[in-house]
Lab assay of single mutants.
Amino acid sequence: MGFKLLSKLLVYLTASIMAIASPLAFSVDSSGEYPTVSEIPVGEVRLYQIADGVWSHIATQSFDGAVYPSNGLIVRDGDELLLIDTAWGAKNTAALLAEIEKQIGLPVTRAVSTHFHDDRVGGVDVLRAAGVATYASPSTRRLAEVEGNEIPTHSLEGLSSSGDAVRFGPVELFYPGAAHSTDNLIVYVPSASVLYGGCAIYELSRTSAGNVADADLAEWPTSIERIQQHYPEAQFVIPGHGLPGGLDLLKHTTNVVKAHTNRSVVE
């Protein structure tokens, strides 16, 4: 069995187990497998329904001669939608809004960016022009300005110390501490036991640490421990890039980060 097929099978099995364990909360999309990078042309966006009122959005972007996937989250909030992270750029984010209108038909009224990198804030200006209120932590807003990236308009308070959590509509926002970046936030959907790890969490097929220019490698494993301790009931975990899975993604990420750190020390 090929690795790609095995990865998709694991996603399907995880979703099936969740649907059985929580039949009222989960209505997993039966329309197909989780979209992969090879299936999404740059400039297009796919939506994948995880649970009743919960979707991931998947886009792709060219970077350094390669094409990478990027995940975000959409959560229903009454007759409105909360968006977590842009679709990595203005063109993708405009396509995301169009796809949401086509498939869901509810307005996106608020959006949260989970850290300051372009795959999370690139497209904020498109959201703002569409009347979406954009939010991020003060740290993310400051770092985005320093980096020359787009800056969300509103500040999220109460997320300055490791372990801080605040309720934001249908989700809980959690600051686990520094990891992929010093400002990275985690998003949890309690009604569906869905954990969105953003770039602080890796997919299972990833074996290298990737972009760690703004990471705190020493603190990252401790931050992941905080996530595990705060959300032990999480059933569906979405990484910032690639295929979702279960809580095993947290341990896998820790292993990859520690291996990278150990290699760096040896070198």
Rank of each mutant, 00 (worst) to 15 (best):
A200T: 06
R141C: 06
I238G: 02
S161D: 13
G197I: 02
T222I: 11
P176K: 00
T60P: 04
L47M: 13
L156S: 03
E150F: 01
T114S: 07
H252K: 05
L13P: 08
S7R: 08
G89F: 02
H117C: 00
N92D: 02
I238Q: 02
I224E: 01
A111T: 07
E99R: 13
M1T: 06
K258F: 10
G177R: 02
I17Q: 07
V256I: 14
R110I: 10
D216Y: 05
H180L: 04
L247C: 07
A21Y: 15
L106R: 11
L47V: 13
E172C: 03
V28C: 07
D214G: 07
G163L: 05
A15V: 08
G32R: 09
F63E: 03
Y68L: 06
P221T: 12
G89R: 01
K91G: 13
S161C: 07
I17C: 12
D52V: 11
L243G: 11
A21N: 14
I201A: 01
S181Q: 04
P35V: 09
K4D: 11
P176Q: 02
V132L: 04
Y48E: 13
K258H: 12
R142V: 13
V166N: 05
G2V: 08
D29G: 10
D52F: 10
T140A: 05
P170H: 02
G123P: 05
G53Q: 12
E80T: 10
L127H: 05
S62V: 05
P190K: 09
N255G: 13
E101P: 07
F116K: 00
A25F: 11
Y196C: 04
V265K: 11
A51F: 07
V121Y: 01
E44V: 10
H115P: 03
N211A: 05
D29F: 08
A87Y: 00
L185R: 02
F116W: 15
R128I: 11
E219L: 07
G246P: 06
T222P: 08
G198E: 04
R46E: 09
L250F: 08
S191N: 11
I151P: 06
P23M: 09
L47D: 04
P23V: 11
F174Y: 10
L159A: 03
Q228F: 05
T207S: 12
Y68C: 04
L173T: 05
L82V: 09
I186T: 12
Q235R: 11
S38D: 11
N71V: 02
L173Q: 00
S31F: 07
S56P: 10
F116G: 02
L173A: 00
G163M: 05
A144R: 09
L6Q: 09
N184W: 01
L127G: 02
N255S: 12
R142G: 12
V28D: 10
T153V: 13
T153A: 11
F174H: 04
V187M: 06
T134E: 02
S223Q: 01
P244C: 02
R226Q: 08
L96E: 00
R46F: 07
I201G: 01
P244L: 06
L204R: 14
L195F: 07
V75T: 03
A130H: 12
R120Y: 02
Y175R: 01
S160N: 13
E44Y: 07
N92L: 01
P221S: 10
A66G: 12
G32W: 10
V257M: 10
A94L: 14
L195D: 00
V146T: 13
F168A: 02
G89M: 00
L81T: 06
R167M: 12
S264G: 12
N184E: 00
S30I: 09
L143F: 11
G177E: 01
F116R: 04
S31M: 08
I20T: 11
T134W: 02
N255H: 11
K258R: 12
P35W: 12
D216L: 06
A215V: 05
T207G: 14
H117V: 00
V67W: 11
G197D: 04
H230A: 15
A87P: 00
T261Q: 12
S208T: 14
A129N: 15
V256N: 06
Y34I: 11
T134S: 07
L82H: 01
T109W: 07
T14Q: 08
Y175S: 01
A200Q: 02
F236T: 10
N184Y: 03
